[in-house]
Simulated scan of single mutants.
Amino acid sequence: MAPQECHLTALVLISVVAAILGSLQVGYHTGNVNAPAKIIEEFFNQTWRHRYNETMPDESLTLLWSLSVSIKDFGALLGCLGVKFVADNFGAVPVLINKGQEDEADAALLRLRGRPEPVQAELEEMKGEAAHIQASVGVLDFFRKRSYRQPIIIVLCVNLGSQLSGFNAIINYSTRMFQANFEEAKYLTLGVGAVNVIFTLVAFFLMERAGRRRLLLMGFIIIAMCNLLLTVIDSLVQTVPELGSFQVLLVFSLISAYELGPGPISWFIAGELFDQPGRSIGMAFASMLNWGGKFLLALLFPPIYKVIGGFSYLLFMAMALMGFAFTWFRVPETKGRTFDEIAEEFRGAENLPLHNKNGFNTFP
């Protein structure tokens, strides 16, 4: 949306806090399974020995542990199936607008903003956007509509590049990565969480200044470089233990780069690329890609690492480079643009090269 003068109201504050607390527990459970890994694996082993009077096969233990780490992501993936229903039926302002209930939308926005001036501006923007679009879009229509094809491809590539670039492998298994060279690996895992939080806050302040596209490009290329160096370090650290500290630095750098751009942007970019009827399905689609990518990486990283070792980081590097290349050529800059302006770029322009459109895909 175009920048509006901000006015903090109690409802805005409550909404922000609720959103933050909702994601906080997800982040907590993503990282907290790291530290007790050995205890949980020993529990699996003891249970197996009690039942079968033998040690649990290593392959089975690896699979069971990775499934334990990833199962919450699969649950979140299933939960994404209900995003459209909840957004369309309980989302205050978009549904009042989509259903032609302008008075209800005005009242809801007034409660949210606290003053009539920004409310009128937002309503005018929504009505201007609604003038070009149909009232509602079904799931099949969403994937068939010509003007949605480019946004769908953008959301798909940005999310897969982000979620499969290695961040989720590190955030889920950092303790195990550090244990080979550090006795108190759990404290380094706390450091990973701290860096994650700090650079999420940094991204909050940079997002509107630097722009989404620039942060995506910077994040993807740094992640790719970190993965390449992690491959080298992994092959040398056993013979040169001093490189362990450099490994920690690379992990912290990768986490920082992810949270500066690909991490947060992959979640909300769908909301900026789709018009009102398609926005709820677009957000559900992006959420499914996010959680699906997290689930696959958390599930498959341990067995893949067991087979190819540090070369698994090269797979992450390839995904990050894919994200970088796609962003460079195809992802528009959405900073400072209204939803209608962005949608207009896609409307009826499926075959136009977006990176050549004046002012659309350039650095500010």
Rank of each mutant, 00 (worst) to 15 (best):
A92E: 05
I97A: 03
G100R: 11
N98E: 07
A105V: 11
P94M: 09
K84F: 03
V119H: 13
E125N: 12
K127Y: 05
L110W: 05
L112P: 08
G128S: 10
G91L: 05
A92P: 13
N89L: 09
A130N: 04
L112W: 14
V95R: 09
K84H: 11
P94Q: 10
Q101Y: 15
K127N: 03
A92V: 00
E125Q: 06
E124L: 08
V95F: 03
V93P: 02
E129S: 15
A131Q: 00
G100M: 00
L110D: 13
L123H: 07
D106F: 14
E122Q: 07
E129T: 14
Q120F: 00
V119W: 11
L112T: 09
A105K: 01
A130C: 06
R115L: 13
K99S: 14
L123R: 11
V86F: 12
E125H: 09
A130M: 06
P118E: 15
R113F: 01
G100Y: 03
N89P: 14
A92Q: 03
E122K: 05
E117H: 09
E102R: 09
R111M: 13
E124Q: 02
M126S: 14
G91W: 12
N89E: 13
V93H: 01
R115I: 10
A92L: 06
I97M: 06
K99F: 01
D88Q: 12
E104Q: 02
E102V: 04
A87D: 09
L109S: 12
L109F: 10
D103I: 15
I97P: 07
N89Q: 15
E125F: 11
E117W: 08
A108P: 06
E125G: 11
G128F: 13
F90L: 15
E129Y: 05
M126A: 10
Q120A: 13
A121C: 04
A130P: 04
Q101G: 07
F90P: 13
P118F: 00
G128W: 11
F85C: 02
L123W: 12
V95N: 01
R113T: 00
F85V: 07
E117P: 00
V86A: 15
L112E: 07
A108M: 07
R115Y: 14
A108H: 10
P116S: 00
I97Q: 00
L96K: 11
A130T: 02
V93W: 08
